[in-house]
Amino acid sequence: MKTVAVVGTGAIGTSVALALSRRGLTVHLEDVNATAVRTAEAMGAGSVGAPAERVDLAVIAVPPAHTGPVLGQLQRRGVAHAYTDVAGVKTRPYDDLRLAGADPSSFIGGHPLAGTERLGPLAARADVFEDRPWILTPTARTAQSVLNRALELVSLCAAVPVIMDPLVHDRTVARTSHAPQLISTLMAATLVDATESDLRVAGQGLRNVTGPAGGDPGLWRDVFTANADALADVLDTYAADLGRAVGALRALGHTDGTVRERAEAELDGLLRLGHRGRARVAGAASGAPAAVRLSVAVSGRPGTLARLFGAVGELGGRIEEVRLESAQDPPRGNVSLSVPRTSVADLFRLLRAGGWTPNVVTLPDAPHRATRPAGPGEPVAAEARADEAG
């Protein structure tokens, strides 16, 4: 990939452009906001103006409500061979694309899980995506070449590709991002009428909870609108638990000792559930298996990467890096991944069933890189390489 168009020069779009320009790509910048796009250009993110000929990839960095219309417009102009976006909601662009009668094969949804509370190009950083997940949401109609371009984009930005179904993505981020944002906002809203003396004694906990509420209200309104049903489902569950907490707190002052004991047990149960959930977020859940890193050589034949990603996903693993040599036809390269230590044998079986043969294992505690053939079911914990058969 040599040429890219970035449409939208806010913090994320400009960060993408900076990362790609740093890697030597030619980047064309577009934005309806003349000040923003000129600022991004002055920062070294690329050059302002539409490309003279079709670029390899167009990255759409506009709010979710505008992603579909902008995508349709770019396709009609023939700006790029492939298109992706960075919006936080993934089903809506596909719906808009279908309603517009545009070509779904050249588009793949994308969502880098990185950013900043600050807005505009001046908040951009070329390294903001490094080692951060970047979700890609191909569908059955996404061309393999488009998936390959998106994977190359993620690699050039030093991010970690994660493949998800668009609907699953929206349900997931409703729980992990959108609901926390709205809950933080509602908590912050209770402080509007707080007295100055109240705020002077506010602790770190309040600052932590209300921190996300500082995000741009207009942007979050668009996100919530585009993902309303999934977000409402998460909040239904949260509201039920909140109701249980309120009921338990009210009952703590009851004159009946049995009622008080039930209320204490209810409150204790909610607190313990929260503690367990927080431990999972922090990666500190007891008994979590150690991760094993592997490298798999693949070709860009249709369906190859999708099959591999599916196999890794079945075992609770994750893709860490994808490097494809697009100059070859079909493209070939390596996929670095990690899986729980306890899933290594199962992964090897799935790789063999999918047409790959694991053939080298690096032992974990060796003083140097000693390699030998992999034994089926062997509990290794370092790096293995599997070359695609055929």
Rank of each mutant, 00 (worst) to 15 (best):
V59R: 01
V292I: 04
L351I: 02
V89E: 11
P64M: 01
A100H: 06
R385F: 15
L119G: 01
L305W: 10
A282H: 10
A100T: 04
E117A: 11
V4A: 10
A80W: 10
L219W: 06
G211L: 13
P373W: 07
R372P: 02
I319Y: 01
L270G: 07
R207A: 10
L324F: 05
G287M: 14
V223E: 07
Q75R: 01
S105I: 08
A174M: 10
A366H: 13
V380D: 02
E314K: 15
R280K: 09
E53V: 15
S343Y: 00
R260S: 03
D170F: 07
A123D: 02
V292L: 04
G44F: 09
P121D: 08
G253A: 13
L136Q: 05
R76L: 12
E383P: 00
A174F: 11
T185C: 09
S106H: 07
L122W: 00
R307T: 14
R221V: 02
P302T: 06
G78W: 12
R175K: 05
S197C: 00
V154D: 05
A311F: 07
L119E: 14
A291T: 10
D387A: 12
A213H: 02
A265H: 12
A374M: 13
A179F: 12
G46F: 04
E152H: 12
D31R: 02
I60L: 14
L97A: 04
G269K: 04
D216W: 02
E266M: 11
R272K: 11
H111I: 04
T185N: 08
P166R: 03
L347H: 03
R149M: 12
G214V: 13
T304M: 12
G375H: 08
V162Y: 09
P93M: 06
N334W: 15
I319Q: 03
R332F: 09
W134R: 06
L270Q: 06
L113N: 08
G269Q: 11
V48M: 12
A282E: 15
E378T: 08
L113D: 08
A150W: 12
R76E: 15
Y94Q: 05
V168E: 15
